[in-house]
Design a protein around this nucleic acid. Structure first.
Length: 637
RNA sequence: GCCAAUGUAGCUCAGAUGGCAGAGCAGCUCACUCGUAAUGAGCAGGUCAACGGUUCGAAUCCGUUCAUUGGCUCCA
């Protein structure tokens, strides 16, 4: 008699030794069909395993996050089997589940995207066979014997802890070394797709063999796969590199790889972003500063960058002196601080700087505006007394919230603590980390903790925003720095008339203006809200004779600081409207004889709605209001 | 930097097997002067990324370089 306890504390008894599947079936067949694995004593196990003693179990089903991971892990096995069916002498290495699917690193000749179809076809066949995954426990010696032709698996086996049992999984003819667990049978993979191929080093070590990494994704439902594919396609449509070209915002040139060129229209958006940034920062008690782009090597030695960051820095020799283009703004900020003597009464000092920095990123890492070699940080350095940490960090979080919500972006927070390689005493780290924690508590929102993920000079809070497609991006960061004030011997006079060391934080909110711009393009799919739109209104004269009147109106709107253009092309109205719509101009104003005679405007918005007979005042008032409030609302009239 | 793919007109792309470089959009000209998502006709536009090689002949084949794209963190 076996007694099984379920999560709701109910108990069921079985005459004979049941498998996990038997137990699931005893609840209902429908439930069993949706079961993927079971959890016993915190360990995930196959449903096919017998339960030999009284124990508490809970089932992992297709609805659980864990279930999906197991499915994808099993999918990796199926993919590996498919690859082996086609490429007989391929050698498998590891095939884990990752955030967005799974991969398998395989030692084989390079394959191309065109080969994926054949592998997918093989996988389909295997899935159709509904093969079960059979688990077998072997000794280390047996495992070594089975994988004697595979140096990668041997290496893994040799490293395994002797106290662990070594398990193999067989589905069909395919056997792999694996911890498990797996789905009951391959038929549960209802939707899958192989996504991409890349090179990857064995154990991520450049000195070791380069393997082929095949990526795939899979789901329990075909529908979920379609949804995923749809998301990828939607993301593709919003690709800021494509939209940037089409909307004439920015471009990239071979002559300066990774360094974007902003066009006139792009700069309108850029300036609107910065104007808003300045407004918020002024209101939050910041001053704005500016430091040079190129500074002497001595400064970088003092700041520690020469030692820690040199391979990413652009350098040049001028008048026999070595200079480096700044990869960060902070050392310049240090010099600014040192230009005067500070009293505790002066603190906190909040000094912002929209600084242009250059970092020599690996050529393969470059990607549109998202990963560049030259960019502007909306940086600020805050110098303060130790007891101001909580308040100042809180202030940054609140400022960040105000700014992000302006764009309709949600966000979450992550706290990163001391990494292995770091400077400073335990005491300092404790104080700094507690300071950040205190601020987070004051702020009152949940946050994740990334143990050991801080900068070498201090702990930090990262702010991750979530765009309209649900993708997250790390933009803002608040970093406590325990190194630079020391290295530059920053001080302030305390109430006690003694010198004290200020605490310093670095923080950004947009992060990289370039990158944030790119994120916004994708977030809005190119349709900027009115306050950001490069061209806010376009005037379309119905015929050539009306162009003069259109220009007159344009001049009037421009005195109100509304960015506008006249489309003087010798085209039909239909055509001009189409062009304006495709360029996402929020306000499309047609100028015909009727409008000229009555001195009114006929306004079409991007949703295709038309409002006729508006007087200039009826138009300008609400428009300026919408711009001033920087609202995301399309509805203006 | 490493692996793979890609690079043809301002943009999007076609150009098996080597034999005079093409389309649509955009641009320019002309006609039309138009009322809410494409008027028509014509013209112009190219060192086929760069350099080198193979060949009677290269956008096409080979090599090098540059750039772009997807990866290179997730541990049986």
């Amino acid at each position: 008699m076996i007694n099984i306890t379920f999560p709701d504390n109910s108990i069921k008894s079985f005459e004979n030794i049941p498998t996990g599947m038997d137990v699931a079936n005893s609840i209902s067949q429908g439930f069993a069909r949706n079961c993927v694995a079971m959890e016993i004593n915190g360990r995930l196990m196959d449903l096919s395993l017998p339960i030999k003693q009284d124990i508490a179990i809970s089932f992992i089903t297709v609805k659980d996050e864990e279930g999906l991971k197991i499915l994808r892990h099993s999918s990796a096995h199926v993919m590996a089997e498919a690859v082996l069916n086609i490429y007989k002498d391929a050698k498998l290495t590891i095939g884990p589940v990752v955030e967005d699917g799974f991969y398998y690193d395989i030692d084989m000749a390079p394959v191309s995207k065109d080969d994926l179809g054949a592998i997918e076809a093989q996988m389909k066949k295997i899935i159709k066979e509904k093969n079960t995954f059979e688990r077998k426990v072997v000794t280390k010696k047996e495992a070594q014997d089975i994988f004697r032709d595979n140096p990668f698996k041997l290496e893994i086996i040799n490293e395994l802890d002797d106290t662990l049992e070594i398990s193999l999984y067989r589905n069909g003819k395919f056997i792999d070394l694996c911890r498990g667990p797996h789905i009951p049978h391959t038929g549960m993979i209802k939707g899958f797709k192989l996504l991409k191929i890349s090179g990857a080093y064995w154990r991520a070590d450049q000195t070791r063999k380069q393997l082929q990494r095949l990526y795939g994704i899979s789901f329990f439902e075909k529908k979920a796969l379609n949804k995923y594919i749809h998301l990828i396609e939607e993301a593709k449509k919003r690709d800021h590199r494509k939209l940037g070209t089409r909307l004439d915002l920015y471009s990239f040139h071979d002559e300066a790889a990774g360094m974007p060129f902003f066009h006139a229209k792009g700069i309108e958006v850029w300036n609107a972003l910065l104007e808003y940034w300045r407004e918020e920062h002024k209101a939050a008690g910041y001053v704005e500063t500016k430091t040079p782009v190129m500074l002497n090597r001595k400064l970088w030695e003092q700041s520690g960058h020469w030692e820690n960051y040199r391979e990413n820095m652009y350098t040049s020799v001028i008048d026999d002196e070595e200079y480096a283009i700044k990869p960060m703004n902070c050392p310049g900020g240090m010099l600014l601080y040192k230009t005067k003597a500070y009293s505790y009464r002066d603190l906190p000092v909040r000094a912002g700087e929209v600084g242009l920095v250059h970092r020599h990123e690996l050529s393969g890492a470059l990607s549109g505006l998202f990963r560049v070699r030259a960019f502007h940080q909306d940086d600020a350095h805050i110098f303060m007394t130790p007891d101001q940490i909580g308040n100042e960090v809180l202030g940054v979080l609140e400022l960040a919230q105000r700014i992000y919500s302006r764009f309709g972006l949600e966000f979450h927070l992550e706290l990163s603590t001391r990494p292995k390689k770091s400077i400073g005493s335990d005491e300092q780290w404790k104080e700094a980390t507690n300071g950040l924690k205190a601020a987070l508590e004051l702020y009152g929102r949940e946050y994740l903790i990334n143990e050991g993920d801080g900068a070498f000079y201090g702990p930090k809070i990262d702010i991750h925003i979530k765009d309209a497609l649900g993708r997250t991006w790390q933009c803002g960061t608040v970093q406590l720095d325990m190194s630079l004030p020391e290295r530059f011997d920053l001080t302030y006079k305390g109430r006690d008339n003694e010198k004290h060391r200020p605490i310093m934080i670095h923080r950004v909110i947009y992060g990289s203006l370039e990158r944030f711009f790119g994120i916004l393009v994708e977030h809005f799919a190119g349709r900027f809200p009115l306050w950001l739109a490069p061209v806010q209104a376009i005037l379309l004269p119905i015929n050539q004779d009306l162009a003069v009147h259109a220009e007159k109106i344009k001049a009037e709107l421009e005195t109100c600081k509304i960015r506008c253009e006249v489309d003087r092309k010798n085209e039909t109205l239909k055509k001009k409207i189409r062009d304006a719509q495709l360029n996402y101009v929020p306000l499309i104003i047609t100028i015909g004889d009727k409008e000229k005679q009555t001195n009114t405007l006929s306004v079409r918005t991007l949703d295709g709605k038309v409002k006729m007979g508006l007087s200039m005042q009826e138009f300008i008032g609400p428009v300026l209001n919408n711009i001033k409030e920087r609202t995301l609302k399309d509805a203006i009239f």
